[in-house]
Simulated scan of single mutants.
Amino acid sequence: MKDIFVLKTIIRKFSTIDECFKQEQIGKEDLIITNEFIYNSKLKDVEAHIIFQERYGIGEPTDEMIENIRKDVPSNTKRIVAIGGGTIIDISKFLILDYEGTIDQVIMQEIPYKKTKELYVVPTTCGTGSEVTNVAISELKKRKTKKGLADDLIYPDKALLIPEMVDTLPYKFFATSSIDALIHSIESYLSPNSTLYSRMFSVKAMTMILDGFKKVVNDSKENWSQYAENFLIASNLAGIAFGNAGCAAVHALSYPLGGAYHIPHGEANQLMFESVFNKYYEKDPNGRIQDFLRVLSEILDVEKEDSLKALFELTNQILKRKPLSSYGIKKEELPEFVNSVIEGQQRLLNNNYVELSSNDMLEIYNNVYDK
């Protein structure tokens, strides 16, 4: 027997962070993991213990960052409150685990571990969806790649949605995070692990995100925040979808870009998005991708045969895709990226719409290398 749908996290929505802290009774025995700019602009004078993530390293999670923060977690902490984007949330997921060894060994499933703390999450971007998933990602420095841990132990206990925590996000971070959420919804829709239940969340998420993108393009991009609540909820729905059905090749192929060149996660996904889906269509144009194209054509109000092109034109207006070569990536590195993906990302590749060979993956990289 297989579960066809799982949602283990309680989801609550609040008007303000003050209302949230009061109702959830956040206080002296709690540990808040956040960024200093979030604390100064949104929190201030809270009674809980505070750790500022950026004091341990800049950028997305690394094993070194996680281990150094772990040393400073008070021994009596029973509840961690993660207030931030994907970096904060993923680090906090690792911090609720207790183990003898290193986080590299945990992620590689080489040592036992257990959950010893509760986790509450307040997302401050509209993309990760990590507040409702059992996955956390970290760069493994010695391995020069990013890898995820997928385990029900790291499901957050509560996701606390507060639109005011998102509406001051700079446009670039909105663009990368919301495109990440869109890709969550689309990859999970086409995953062989999807069900009727998960696809309902996928479709609603992609509808809200793409409708929002059309409004953002028609308005001034800097005014995107008037739609912040919709994007926050859509990201949450996409997280529920991919938490059940999984992400696939877009994410898998993006990880070497983040691990080797520190390209932000959502931006790396945008680099791979079009080329992966063109390859999917080339390999199996008559399978369930036709259902996806039908949904897409209805959302974008275009003919089905034009829907993929319209999708990529719209996302390119939100965040323009640049060639891989513009990041300093060397063409001779691409086969190494493919090997890294095959070796380390089978968890994601198993969710592909169709099987991709090493030659397929190399072609996907080459297709976006200099154009």
Rank of each mutant, 00 (worst) to 15 (best):
I154K: 14
P156D: 01
P156W: 05
P156H: 11
P156Q: 01
D157H: 14
D157M: 09
K158M: 14
L160E: 02
L160S: 01
L160D: 06
L161A: 03
L161F: 08
P163K: 09
P163Q: 11
P163L: 06
E164G: 06
E164C: 11
E164I: 12
M165Q: 07
V166Y: 11
D167E: 15
D167C: 13
T168I: 11
T168K: 13
T168P: 03
L169T: 13
L169N: 11
L169Q: 10
L169G: 10
Y171A: 06
Y171K: 04
Y171N: 03
K172A: 13
F173L: 15
F174L: 13
F174E: 13
F174N: 14
F174V: 11
F174P: 10
T176I: 14
S177M: 12
S177T: 15
S177G: 02
S177E: 12
S178V: 11
I179G: 00
A181Y: 08
A181E: 02
L182F: 09
L182M: 07
L182Y: 00
L182N: 00
I183Y: 07
H184D: 13
H184N: 11
H184Y: 03
H184A: 07
S185W: 03
S185I: 10
I186R: 08
I186H: 05
I186S: 09
I186E: 01
E187A: 07
Y189E: 08
L190M: 15
L190S: 06
L190H: 07
L190W: 05
S191R: 03
P192K: 10
N193K: 15
N193F: 12
N193Q: 14
S194H: 00
T195N: 09
T195W: 02
L196A: 09
L196Y: 13
L196F: 13
Y197L: 14
Y197F: 15
Y197V: 12
S198H: 02
S198G: 09
S198Q: 02
M200H: 09
M200K: 12
M200P: 00
F201Q: 00
S202K: 00
S202M: 01
V203K: 15
V203E: 15
K204D: 13
K204R: 14
K204I: 02
M206S: 12
T207P: 04
T207Y: 08
M208Y: 11
I209A: 02
I209L: 01
L210S: 05
L210I: 10
D211I: 04
G212S: 08
G212A: 06
G212Q: 07
G212L: 10
G212N: 05
F213Q: 06
F213Y: 15
F213N: 03
K214D: 05
K214G: 00
K215A: 09
K215Y: 04
V216L: 08
V216E: 05
V216D: 02
V217P: 04
V217W: 05
N218E: 15
D219K: 08
D219R: 04
D219W: 06
D219L: 10
S220W: 03
